[in-house]
Simulated scan of single mutants.
Amino acid sequence: MAQHLTDKDIENIVELLDYWPLDQKLTWERLCQAIELQLELVPAPTRQTLQKYVRIKTAYDQCKKPQVSKVKSNTTQKLPASLKIAQTKIEALEVKNARLEKENALLLEQFVVWQYNAYKYGVSIDKLNEPLSKKNS
């Protein structure tokens, strides 16, 4: 049976991809192993389960992009330990930033679709902007 992932699990997996070591080849199998070891999700979700989640698939694809490979080839020069740590952190943040920009673009596209459908079906701006109802306790 396929494992269902919570929003927190998805966020943790995407974060794991953001900080994937640039000197390690990324494969679905290695990602599943890392999820099991680092996030302690046992049994680890399968490749098929992970690919069903758009955020995970997008982050994985972003991590596999050729531009990341270019960054890997630039890291071969000798650096002091403190600069190497800083460089690794900067590279991870650049990957995370690129992923977040891609996610934001996808959300904006989704918003345009919703906006069009709301107009098409006569849902007013006032209705769309109504606050969420509060739970009665």
Rank of each mutant, 00 (worst) to 15 (best):
M1I: 10
T6H: 12
K8I: 15
I10R: 13
E11M: 14
E11L: 13
N12P: 02
L16I: 12
L16T: 11
D18F: 13
W20M: 10
Q24I: 13
K25T: 14
W28N: 13
R30T: 13
L31P: 00
I35V: 10
L41F: 04
P45R: 07
P45S: 04
R47G: 06
Q48L: 09
T49D: 03
K52P: 02
K52C: 09
R55W: 09
T58C: 05
A59H: 01
D61T: 03
Q62P: 00
Q62V: 03
C63G: 02
K64S: 03
K65D: 07
V68C: 02
V68G: 00
V68K: 03
K70N: 04
S73P: 00
T76I: 03
L79S: 01
P80F: 01
K84P: 01
I90Q: 04
I90Y: 05
E91W: 11
L93M: 08
L100A: 03
E101P: 01
K102H: 12
L107E: 07
Q110T: 03
V112Y: 08
W114Q: 11
W114C: 08
Q115V: 00
Q115T: 04
A118L: 05
A118C: 05
Y119C: 08
Y119S: 06
K120W: 10
Y121S: 03
Y121T: 05
G122S: 09
V123L: 12
V123A: 04
V123G: 06
I125Q: 12
K127D: 08
N129F: 10
N129C: 12
P131F: 14
K135L: 12
K135D: 10
N136E: 08
S137W: 11
S137Q: 12
